[in-house]
């Protein structure tokens, strides 16, 4: 099984899970969570026009503490 097929399958599985509204918690990496943002009116500051933005679902990734520490350490190493 090549890596491309693997990643395709992984992506499908993850999308299924997130569509269900579940969270994915990977140890030493982080958690993935689907978050819905409601519709809102935004104003374009340049033109002054108001735009109604439709609701959307975004995937929120919060890195695990270990990963954050690793990133910090990498900066020190540099």
């Amino acid at each position: 099984m090549d890596s491309n097929n693997f990643y395709k399958a992984l992506g499908e599985v993850i999308t299924d899970i997130l569509n269900r509204g579940d969270q994915i918690a990977l140890p030493a990496f982080g958690t993935f969570k689907a978050v819905k943002t409601n519709e809102r009116v935004e104003t374009d500051k340049e033109t002054g026009k108001k735009i109604l933005v439709p609701p959307s679902i975004a995937i929120e990734f919060t890195p695990a503490l270990k990963l954050v520490k690793q990133v910090k350490n990498s900066q020190k190493a540099l």
Binding site: L18, A34, K49, K50, P54, S56
Partner: peptide
């Protein structure tokens, strides 16, 4: 993931 809101587009008010 955004399939339920696929038909919506930002509307200028």
């Amino acid at each position: 993931i955004n399939e339920p809101f696929a038909f919506f587009e930002p509307v200028e008010l």
